[in-house]
Design a protein around this nucleic acid. Structure first.
Lengths: 209, 209
DNA sequence: CGTGTCGGAGAACGGGTGTTTACTGAATGG
DNA sequence: CCATTCAGTAAACACCCGTTCTCCGACACG
């Protein structure tokens, strides 16, 4: 085993990735439901018919993009949950990590924010399922913090879902500001996010009354 | 003055509204950036060229839909802000009003949630501007509550923006559940929203420390 | 080395698209 | 009452679309 995979499969995966990249690029200025198959193959420099060797149709490419986009987010979330110090430092680090992630993966963030409520059912469901997994992961992380000792599992999940939603909204807001090259707006949004997280954190501390 | 407007203008506004209605209906299963001009006129039963008597292009129809959709939301927000009783009752009433609004205006809610981060810049900006106005309105309402006495204006606005975002997210989530005819999921989401609002409310009470 | 596999090319198909043009006929207003 | 305005029509424009088909040629493998 562990053969170096054939030149054949390597080339195939290469054009498949090229299709995904081209799709993601084109989705910067339109929605998935208006993305054309020919449009994608044209950017890659490949015949329209070649598309079918990799995806059944455009929605199928969409769900592949969901996996690609949210796969990289897993790393971010684990990084945030692994933070050790106090609440305030944790919040600062969290927002900093999000800011950095948005700057480094703008297209993925835009795609998720756009298609989360977009016009393609299969993609919406794929995103919802993945975000639910994230929420569960965050909930598990929250469980281990002493603050959550007296909490019910339901309430911990409720809090985790709130964090995930807030994360997506914040990332999308930073991205919108970054699109306008408005660094000041970015900072303002980050500061707002920090204060919102602080507010939630305060609510957490007094939940069990 | 105060002439009853001519039969001419009345008919024009009638087909204009028909175009808006048809557009909104078609947007239930696609995004604005894939909505076709001919598609809309076909539903209305009017010649494609007639479209140009009312809108410059599809994005233009989109911003008109934004005004229509968020205009009706103004009423809802005022209703929520006018609530008198304690925090708990206010939260229950708020969520109940949102549930009712979603059930009565599903297409408008879906449109806003979908196009808020959608592929048409002009529409995104129109929605953002309108939601900013809502946030300002909510902030003004919060200011008048005794709880906000020691708060800075910036912090009140931050809280208001959080409420607005939370409202949109909740409405969209309820709608998704309603689309699947899953009444149980609707109730679960409403209950989650209530608890999240309670958490925020708790944070509010202890903000000034 | 020869045979089979398969990613991609190229062309053709029917059909849909946005936009412009010249027009019709009914409401309008002096 | 008659000239004007103008919402809506019908046709034509050039173009883009998804999908299918046949074919090619480089890799895979016994």
């Amino acid at each position: 085993m562990s053969h170096t995979i054939g030149v054949r499969q390597a080339q195939k995966q290469k054009t498949r990735q090229a299709l995904l990249d081209a799709g993601l690029r084109l989705l910067a200025e339109q929605s998935l439901s208006s993305l054309g198959l020919r449009e994608v193959t044209r950017v890659v420099g490949v015949a329209p018919a070649a598309f079918y060797r990799h995806f059944r149709d455009i929605p199928d490419l969409g769900v592949a993009l969901v996996e690609e986009s949210l796969g990289s987010l897993h790393v971010v979330i684990r990084a945030i949950l692994a933070e050790q110090p106090g609440a305030e430092e944790r919040i600062d680090r969290t927002v900093a990590v999000v800011e950095r992630y948005v700057r480094e993966n703008p297209a993925h963030v835009r795609f998720i924010a756009r298609e989360r409520h977009g016009g393609v059912r299969a993609v919406r469901k794929a995103i919802a399922a993945e975000l639910a997994r994230f929420a569960a992961e965050v909930a598990a992380g929250l469980r281990e913090q002493p603050v959550s000792d007296a909490w019910s599992d339901d309430d911990v999940l409720m809090l985790a879902e709130m964090y995930v939603d807030h994360l997506v909204m914040t990332a999308s807001a930073i991205l919108d500001a970054a699109d306008d090259d408005d660094a000041a707006a970015c900072d303002r949004i980050a500061e707002r996010a920090r204060r919102q997280l602080r507010l939630i954190s305060l609510g957490r501390l007094h939940w069990t009354d």
